[in-house]
Nucleic acid binder design. Structure first.
Length: 872
DNA sequence: GCAAGGTC
């Protein structure tokens, strides 16, 4: 039976559209099969080679593009992955050291794509591999090659290479096809094997030694561990930092009506200009000298112009850096860039290249923006230049062009504000790279009293150049007036500032990514993912990332026993080895065998220290949960998790000390650096996506909770209540009676009227979350409680007696039902779960971030939340 | 349950 590639009827995504709108005529003769790295590339190549006349259909959910005897299909990066055979999969049954000599297998990871590829390969007369033009692309191409060979031993397979998907490059590549570079692919394969063996063996060893086998395993890897060491080393510097006192002197100088700031400086022993004075006595002497005078003499005026060259084209790292100065995390910036790329507005966002290809015609691209409401003016001004020469960076690669706009411009309403902001950044960066340089004028004035000198540095932007089209860099000026040598200037406001040297700053996310690039670890596509991994593994917290005690212990253990895996040199060596394989000087086996031997040696040393390492890791895991001293016994309080999974604060002295404190039910607790002055306990932040909030010191919170005005007796257990009457009859203990109602604020921030005998008496009435609550003198006749007034917004809201208010509320509810339950497709169970996550009504629901909700609430997907929001 | 590298 002939197998058809016509999509099956039950594939709801199936489509068979014609780019030209013509009806489709399928040719069943054998065809040429073109394989690309991704669907996007497949479509664009089909478009170029077919002149826009391709048909598209879907097979197993994979797009297939077809035209005159050719089919083109995109992979999704690697469609097979390396792993150990299944008998190695139980961590407890296999000694980690055994993984070193275990075989490594390749298995399909994207079954549908592999199946489609096999199907198409059977029908192919010739196969052309058109994956990305870099090492990993060669390996992905080799993987496709193996799949094709598996179904057809003889079909000719060739390779084409191009560094940007433009008409010229693609046509040229197909005119001069080449063969697959098996050595280059083998180089990539060696990396896969070495990364898997080192990563898996060491990860399992550390996890087993610390008894961390669940989802909280302790990971190590060639890229993540040196990155973590960067963060840990910086933290060590910060912890070891010893601040030093110094002084700086500032004064105001005046020329006519204009005053400007000047700073004291001197020449240090190396004859460099220095501003910091390290001895207090010297600082005082300088201060006295200046404060006794009311004028200084100008002794030097230095004016020079400086050219400020426009920035180079965006590669991934520089793009992330620019986006981070707009407040985007690396992850978010990349995610938006990927969306803009998929939608066709910008070029591929994962690139090392900083040199535009010859194919890019800047004027043509600028033309696309002419007439645009917000971007047009800049483009038009740039087109006025006589000649346009784009800037170039140092790195020129074959993979992809630098990130630039495609010329396709989204309508403002088609994309979100964030997407637009990032799109505009990419557009303006392109503008900047073809713009003129800016020119600054610097004016330095030096004035003197006795032997002491003041300087003022002025700067003025004379030619704004590229800053006109790229407003992301500061162009702030500092005005210093024109003065002449020998001129006297009035002196006032002399101030001596006592300061302290500061510890080095933590790496920010974009600085880390830049440093990784400099050290050659990770790739353009993975560096930001590696940072995410460090967060996921519990190695870093907050932003900028701060290492946990666990991270410090892992780095320490690695430094002691497996130094290679925390050093960037492992990558440097691997790169050299891969080059050797690619050039035929070494084989895959040479390199992987040597690597295995090195790891064997490491394990020989590790074995004896397994318990010691485990103890150290366990201790640091506990330190990461430490809040500070227990007020009852002096041991430490720890963040713990109950059997039901909820978090609370318990004492390390348990069971001797049973002291506990509650934590809010929403989110995952994060122990902050900040501590409480009163209790010496670390503050706690509850991480819950968009609903993340700072809980503060849990002891303060516990003490505050329940404090609030008493408004009357509890109707359930207070004076005159039915319970009190009956327990009196039975001679019950009076100590458990006489509850009163108080206005309480809970840790979650919500408020209620509750019984002072909580938790023995659970009587409570709801109160609004916002606004100040006033207790008036007017009393409700029926319930003997004061009327309440809520002050929020312009109009105070008379809530009245809280019991009457609640009864009215209940009456309304029973009429209409909960407003969440009014939505189609939402059940009572879900309403309950949503409420636990802090979403109590429609208003909360529409304001919530669907992804955060999906993360917090079991069984609810982000798409489902979006559908509710649409209905609401 | 492990890595890092593609891609979505």
């Amino acid at each position: 039976m002939r197998r058809s590639i016509v999509p099956s009827d039950d594939d709801r995504y199936s489509s068979a559209t014609t780019a030209t709108g013509r009806s489709r005529t399928r040719r069943w003769s054998a065809v040429e099969l073109i394989i690309t790295e991704k669907d996007n590339a497949a479509r664009r190549i089909a478009d170029i080679l077919s002149g826009g006349t391709y048909d598209s259909s879907r097979e197993n959910g994979v797009n297939v593009y077809e035209w005159g005897g050719k089919r083109c299909v995109g992979l999704s990066g690697h469609v097979v992955g390396v792993d150990f055979p299944p008998e190695y999969s139980d961590w407890r049954d296999v000694e980690p050291v055994e993984l070193i000599d275990a075989s490594v297998e390749k298995t399909p990871t994207k079954e549908n794509i592999v199946a489609t590829l096999r199907l198409l390969a059977r029908r192919a007369e010739r196969v052309t591999i058109a994956t990305d033009y870099d090492r990993e692309g060669e390996l992905i191409g080799k993987e496709a090659y193996d799949i094709v060979r598996n179904v057809d031993e003889d079909v000719p397979i060739r390779r084409v290479r191009f560094s940007s998907i433009t008409e010229n490059e693609v046509q040229q590549a197909f005119d001069e096809p080449d063969d697959l570079d098996f050595d280059l692919a083998a180089a990539g394969e060696a990396r896969q094997i070495i990364d898997l063996i080192w990563g898996a063996a060491l990860t399992r060893f550390l996890s087993l030694s610390a008894g961390q086998l669940g989802e909280d395993f302790i990971s190590v890897g060639r890229v993540q561990s040196p990155t973590l060491k960067l963060i840990v080393d910086r933290e060590r510097e910060i912890e070891a930092f010893d601040p030093e006192d110094y002084w700086e002197l500032f004064a105001d100088l005046q020329k006519d009506e204009t005053s400007f700031e000047a700073q004291y400086f001197y020449r240090d022993e190396d004859d460099n200009e220095a501003e910091r004075v390290w001895e207090e006595a010297v600082a005082d002497e300088v201060y006295e000298t200046f404060s006794e005078r009311d004028a200084v003499t100008v002794v030097d005026v230095n004016r020079r112009t400086r050219t400020d060259t426009p920035p180079t084209p965006f590669n991934t790292t520089q793009f992330i850096r620019a986006a981070s100065s707009l407040g985007y995390s690396a992850k978010r910036a990349m995610s938006i860039a990927e969306d803009l790329y998929t939608a066709g507005y910008i070029t591929y966002p994962r690139t090392d290249n900083t040199v535009y290809p010859d194919d890019l015609d800047p004027e043509e691209l600028l033309d696309d923006f002419v007439g645009h409401t917000t971007l047009g003016e800049s483009a038009e001004s740039l087109l006025e230049a006589d000649e346009i020469t784009p800037t170039e960076g140092d790195e020129e690669t074959t993979d992809h062009p630098p990130i630039h706009p495609t010329g396709e411009i989204p309508a403002r309403g088609d994309i979100s504000d964030d997407e637009w902001e990032i799109f505009e950044l990419v557009v303006r960066r392109f503008f900047a790279t073809v713009a003129e340089a800016a020119v600054w004028e610097h004016l330095k004035v030096v004035a003197e009293v006795d032997d002491y000198r003041l300087k003022a540095n002025g700067k003025r932007l004379v030619e704004p150049g590229y800053h006109d089209v790229y407003p992301y860099f500061s162009t702030s000026e500092n005005y210093v007036p024109d003065v002449d040598e020998g001129e006297e200037l009035a002196l006032s406001d002399v101030e001596l500032e006592a300061k302290e040297t500061q510890p080095p700053r933590r790496y920010g996310q974009s600085r880390l990514i830049e440093t990784m690039e400099e050290l050659g670890i990770g790739t353009k596509s993975t560096r930001h993912d590696i940072l995410e991994k460090l967060y996921d593994r519990g190695y870093v917290e907050s932003d900028p990332p701060r290492p946990t005690r666990l991270a410090m212990a892992v780095v320490e253990a690695a430094e002691d026993y497996a130094d290679r895996v925390v050093s960037e040199e492992m990558t440097a060596q691997l790169e050299a080895d891969m080059d050797a394989i690619a050039s035929g000087e070494a084989t895959l086996d040479d390199v992987t065998d040597e690597s295995r031997e090195m790891l064997e040696e490491i394990f020989a040393n590790l074995a004896e220290s397994r318990d010691e390492i485990g103890d150290q890791l366990r201790k640091s895991l506990k330190d990461d949960k430490r809040l500070g001293p227990c007020p009852e016994c002096g041991e430490d309080l720890l963040v713990r998790r109950s059997r039901h999974g909820s978090y609370f604060v318990g004492c390390d002295g348990y069971p001797d000390c049973e002291f506990t404190l509650p934590l809010p039910s929403t989110g995952k607790p994060l122990i902050m650096e900040e501590t409480c002055d009163e209790h010496d306990l670390h503050h706690v932040k509850m991480l819950a996506g968009r609903q993340t909030f700072v809980h503060g010191c849990p002891l303060c919170k516990a003490e505050d909770a329940g404090e609030g005005p008493i408004i009357g007796d509890c109707p359930e257990c207070g004076e005159g209540s039915a319970t009190t009457e009956s327990s009196r009859d039975e001679g019950g203990e009076t100590a458990e009676e006489g509850g009163e109602l108080a206005i309480k604020t809970l840790q979650s921030g919500s408020r209620l009227v509750g019984c002072t005998r909580y938790p023995d008496c659970e009587y409570s009435l709801p109160l609004p979350r916002r606004g100040e609550i006033e207790v008036t003198d007017e009393y409700c006749d029926e319930h003997d409680l004061p009327e309440l007034v809520v002050h929020s917004g312009d109009e105070p809201w008379e809530l009245g007696c809280p019991i009457c208010n609640y009864q009215e509320f209940q009456a309304r509810e029973s009429e209409s039902g909960s407003d969440l339950e009014s939505l189609d497709g939402i059940g009572a169970k879900t309403v309950e779960k949503l409420a636990d996550a802090g979403i109590e009504d429609l208003e909360d629901l529409t304001a919530a971030d669907p992804d955060a909700v999906a993360e917090d609430v079991d069984g609810v997907s982000a798409d489902r939340v979006r559908s509710w929001q649409a209905k609401a």
